[in-house]
Simulated scan of single mutants.
Amino acid sequence: MGNLRREDQKLYLVTNSDGMEEQVFLKKIENAIKGGVTIVQIREKEKTTRQYIELATKVHEITLKHDVPLIVDDRIDVAMAVGAEGVHLGQSDMPIKTARKIVGEKMIIGATCKTVAQAKEAYESGADYMGVGAIYPTTTKVKTVLTSVDTLKEICAAVPIPANAIGGLTKDNLGILTGAPIAGICVVTAIMKADDTKKAAEELRSAFDRLEAI
């Protein structure tokens, strides 16, 4: 299994570079890490393989400097090419069992799960953590199906690997997750669209810490 601690997942940033100059994008990520982001997933749906590798390499330089794991969305080839710490696979991506054979035991593999059955399959196939949602509707281009908090709690109870809630989460609406034993929250818009990503990350981290303390 990949080396991923539960505390690494408290504030999970999923990137979105749409409409941004590269230097602005990279600066947003670094400032977000300074504000409390504990893990970063680079997600690029439109870039060519070469473009994806070039950008992921630059993001990895930042995450390595701050000792934060880098996860690559969908693309095992890109993750391996840049030496990323992990890869995240959705339900339509490469099966986790197949991915594990390719990447070996050390790389982190995350899985998108929306049901208890998907969570059990992900765990039994060798996933290290799950992203569960969408809790709220999202503004990203990714096709979303809503997952209830009750289902999130059932998923947490069904498998021993950590679960992270994702989908439309902000510092003001985390209360819906009260009582769900999640490892962390995944955010895209709440950080990437913020003018001050360091402040946005600080506020989200504080909100999650309060949630954990309840």
Rank of each mutant, 00 (worst) to 15 (best):
C186A: 15
A180F: 01
R100K: 08
Y123W: 15
L174E: 00
L204F: 11
I135K: 01
I29P: 02
P69Y: 03
I71W: 00
I71K: 01
I214G: 12
V188Y: 05
I96C: 03
G19H: 09
H60L: 15
D128Q: 02
M130V: 07
A84P: 07
G133T: 04
I102N: 06
D195A: 15
R210T: 11
T197L: 11
E203C: 10
L64R: 15
V68L: 10
I76P: 01
P162A: 08
E121N: 10
G19Y: 02
G175S: 05
I161L: 07
E202P: 07
V187E: 04
E46D: 15
I29C: 07
T15E: 07
L55M: 10
D172Q: 15
E22D: 06
D209P: 13
C113W: 00
A81T: 07
I155H: 01
G83W: 08
G19A: 09
V142L: 12
G19E: 05
I39F: 08
I29G: 02
G2C: 09
A84D: 03
T138W: 00
I109E: 03
G175P: 09
Q91W: 02
V37R: 02
V103L: 08
P162V: 04
D209L: 10
N164G: 04
V142C: 05
I53D: 09
V159W: 05
E21W: 12
K171Q: 14
I29R: 01
N16P: 10
A134F: 11
N31Q: 15
K101Q: 08
K101Y: 09
D195K: 15
F25A: 06
K171A: 15
N16H: 10
I182M: 02
G110I: 05
N164D: 08
V116H: 00
L55Y: 05
L174Y: 12
P181Q: 12
T63I: 06
K143Q: 09
A190F: 03
D8A: 13
L4W: 08
A201S: 15
L152P: 08
D77W: 00
I42K: 03
A201C: 08
A200E: 14
K141S: 13
D195Q: 14
V142Y: 04
T197N: 11
I53T: 13
T178C: 12
Y129E: 04
A200F: 06
L204D: 10
R50I: 14
V37W: 03
L211R: 04
E121F: 02
D128T: 06
R210I: 09
S206W: 13
K143V: 15
K199G: 07
L11Q: 05
K120E: 01
I109S: 03
C156L: 09
V72G: 12
S17W: 03
P162G: 12
E121A: 13
D8F: 08
P181D: 02
T170R: 10
D73A: 14
A190L: 02
A158H: 04
G86K: 05
L204S: 02
K65M: 06
